[in-house]
Design a protein around this nucleic acid. Structure first.
Lengths: 146, 146
DNA sequence: CTATATAGACAAGTAGCTTGTCCAAATGGA
DNA sequence: TCCATTTGGACAAGCTACTTGTCTATATAG
């Protein structure tokens, strides 16, 4: 059997479907000005303590690209810039209440996308699946890939 | 435990890593002018019988974008356009020998990326994993997602 | 205290997509 | 068979998310 090659296709197919459904779900909850890539930024900013340069490294893009993304999210009301307590050059990024609301909407959409799969496999088998995938997942940051 | 949310993150993380490794592997095998998105086009063209319009629908982009992608792949020597036997407007797309070589390189890279995971879980458990994911995977075309 | 590194901003250029328009060939209905 | 509509593909222009390059102010290390 060529499980290895099949696995690649399956992971790509699932991830594509997942991204699509989360994006659609988030839009339908009223956040129509967010795109899939923004989710990765939210995930990093929501942890707290992130600067634009941190975000750039996390996303694997240039500082310039990260600065533009932050500027866009600030303009749309999802992100705030605060002075950095120990570095007068840097600005700490944080989510606004709207930013948190969008994050919760994305979580809901993700759960909704996964629910049918969870049901199809059954709770127990699904838990084993998650456990297996946890062993495989790389420790690094989650980034958009193409 | 919130398996559903964890599952989303895991799938995205794995797919990101997978895309990255396949791209790197393909580049290292001498195909440095190919990007991840090209793989999805190769997958469709390699089946045979595809036109540019088919490809556009498969990739979920406009005919224009597909035409530009085909033009690029033709220029780089991966794809050929043949006359369509039953439709004087259309052109049948096919892979050149170089195109097939690139496809094989991508397969090798995918296997290499998956191999450590296969080993980490063990053959049997990995096979069950593939079986589970097969149940979940949507039937439609595999597309780049963001 | 000086040299180097870093956070962020300003400016310009690029690549991969989009919309809009058009033509020629295919298709379907009367 | 003729005409109306659809479809495959091409040409042109524009947009957007990125890039590289340069600069200033602040921080850090020797």
């Amino acid at each position: 059997m060529d499980d290895a090659l099949a696995f690649s296709g399956l992971v790509l197919a699932l991830s594509g479907q997942l991204v699509q459904e989360i994006h659609t779900g988030v839009s339908q909850q009223g956040f129509e000005d967010l795109r899939p890539a923004h989710g990765f930024a939210f995930a990093h900013i929501s942890v707290g303590g992130a600067t634009t340069a941190d975000l750039a490294e996390h996303l694997g893009v240039t500082k310039q690209a990260a600065a533009q993304l932050v500027e866009e999210l600030v303009r749309k009301g999802y992100v705030e810039r605060h002075p950095h307590p120990h570095d007068a050059r840097a600005r700490l990024l944080g989510l606004t209440e709207i930013g948190w609301a969008a994050t919760r909407a994305a979580d809901r959409a993700a759960r909704a996308a996964v629910a049918p799969w969870q049901e199809a496999l059954g709770e127990e088998r699904f838990s084993e699946l998650v456990a297996d995938l946890t062993l495989l997942a790389p420790p690094g940051p989650i980034r958009p890939a193409w």
